[in-house]
């Protein structure tokens, strides 16, 4: 199996003004495409050729940095596009998910604050995550570069890209403004719930 670039699940201008058409064009067509192209080149001749993406990500972590970086970023971006939608965010969450967020993370409002803070606190390029840990609890974490909760035994439910390429055209240095817009207007909670229901 080789990596292929999925289409965006919405139009390039569908997330404006919170994420512009220009940002999505570069982010999807150039950055994600580069991870796909580089990942395929780096896969050739390795034990991971033909393996499912998640296996490549987990298996290459700590062993083959260039392959891991590209495979993990391919995985992260496939999901990232689905973690957003037009008119996303809001306070109406599917019941079971909301209950779990309240139990483990102190409620939706606290989640929003803590998730955005994780993104602000990730120094340099990386991601902030909501994931289910090995012991079944929800947790908020941050990781550098392409790293993600999969390699720590967790299951990602939601992630936000805090590489500068994700927000620099629209927000410049103001990463907190980008994260607030992501949380308030972009999160596709239905997809988060779909992932949660599979755990």
């Amino acid at each position: 199996m080789t990596f292929t670039l999925p289409d965006l699940p919405y139009a390039y201008d569908a997330l404006a003004p919170y994420m512009s058409k220009e940002t999505l064009e570069y982010h999807h067509d150039k950055h994600h495409q580069a991870y796909v192209t580089n990942g395929n080149n780096l896969l050739k001749g390795t034990e991971f050729e033909g393996k499912p993406l998640e296996e490549v990500v987990k298996g290459s972590f700590g062993k083959n940095a260039p392959l891991f970086n590209n495979a993990a970023q391919h995985y992260n971006h496939i999901e990232f596009w689905k973690w957003m939608k037009p008119n996303g965010g809001g306070d109406k969450l599917p019941g079971r998910l909301e209950k779990k967020i309240t139990e483990d993370l102190g409620g939706l409002e606290k989640f929003k604050t803590d998730f955005a803070a994780a993104g602000v606190g990730q120094f340099g390029s990386g991601w902030a995550w909501l994931s289910v840990s090995k012991d079944g609890k929800l947790e908020i974490t941050k990781t550098p570069n392409g790293e993600n909760p999969l390699v720590h035994g967790g299951t990602p439910l939601l992630g936000v890209d805090v590489w500068e390429h994700s927000y620099y055209i629209d927000y410049r240095n103001k990463r907190p403004d980008y994260l607030k817009a992501f949380v308030d207007h972009l999160i596709n909670w239905d997809y988060v719930d779909e992932l949660f229901s599979k755990v």
Partner: peptide, 12 residues
């Protein structure tokens, strides 16, 4: 080579 050093002018 942080993206902020070049993104406005060179993007990716």
């Amino acid at each position: 080579v942080w993206e902020h050093a070049y993104y406005l002018n060179y993007q990716n």
